[in-house]
């Protein structure tokens, strides 16, 4: 199983090549030439073969996440978990990542689990979506099923409505009561 962290979680003291080679060096006894070939193949798949000598601090957020993706698939896992892969990305990086995740999933025959708040991007590539709230599954189904769902909660989430089953105001005292209660200092 592979995992892509929100921050990328690249090792900051080694370069891109060594980061992708890390799982191979730790878990296999492959010769150096084979490690080189495998790493270059994975980096080619994410479009960063020519960035192999860069250090993680020199990468943009999108590039760091693509390197982390290359590292996550280095050992050809059966399943990958993605933790908020689209957060904080510019439109180009976002589009690249969305395509990459789907393409890698299909090319390698993976099972991918994406945890995300980016509804539009996730519905583009997901086969099945589970909506969670308070640790419970609120709704599940294909993106099309969810879009036609009658649930107020699902509508609020998919359309990004400010008020609904998830209230805009944090629960507590009534506003008018608060205003009239002059003796309370705050």
């Amino acid at each position: 199983m592979g995992m892509l962290f929100q921050s990328g979680a690249l090792l900051t003291d080694i370069n891109v090549f060594e980061n992708v080679a890390f799982p191979l060096r730790e878990h296999t006894k492959f010769p150096e030439s084979m490690i080189r070939d495998l790493v270059l193949m994975k980096l080619q798949a994410v479009g960063l073969r020519n960035a192999r000598d860069m250090m993680p601090a020199e990468l943009s957020g999108g590039m760091a996440r693509r390197v982390a993706l290359a590292r996550a698939v280095t050992l050809d896992p059966m399943m990958i978990m993605y933790d908020e892969p689209f957060t904080g990305q510019d439109p180009i990086s976002m589009g690249t990542l969305v395509n990459l995740i789907r393409r890698l999933n299909d090319a390698m025959g993976l099972t991918s689990i994406i945890v995300s708040h980016d509804v539009a991007e996730t519905t583009q590539i997901a086969d099945e979506i589970y909506l969670l709230s308070g640790g419970k599954v609120i709704e599940k189904g294909t993106p099309e099923t969810l879009k036609t769902s009658g649930s107020e909660w699902v509508k609020q989430f998919l359309q990004g409505l400010p008020d609904g089953p998830v209230p805009f105001h944090y629960p507590g005292n009534d506003f008018s009561k608060d205003l009239l209660n002059a003796e309370e200092k705050r």
């Binding site: 199983m1 592979g2 995992m3 962290f5 929100q6 921050s7 979680a9 690249l10 090792l11 900051t12 890390f22 799982p23 730790e26 878990h27 590292r71 050992l75």
Partner: peptide
Amino acid sequence: TEQLSGMEMMAV
């Protein structure tokens, strides 16, 4: 920066 968690996820 989750580097230690990342290692654990790579079974290191």
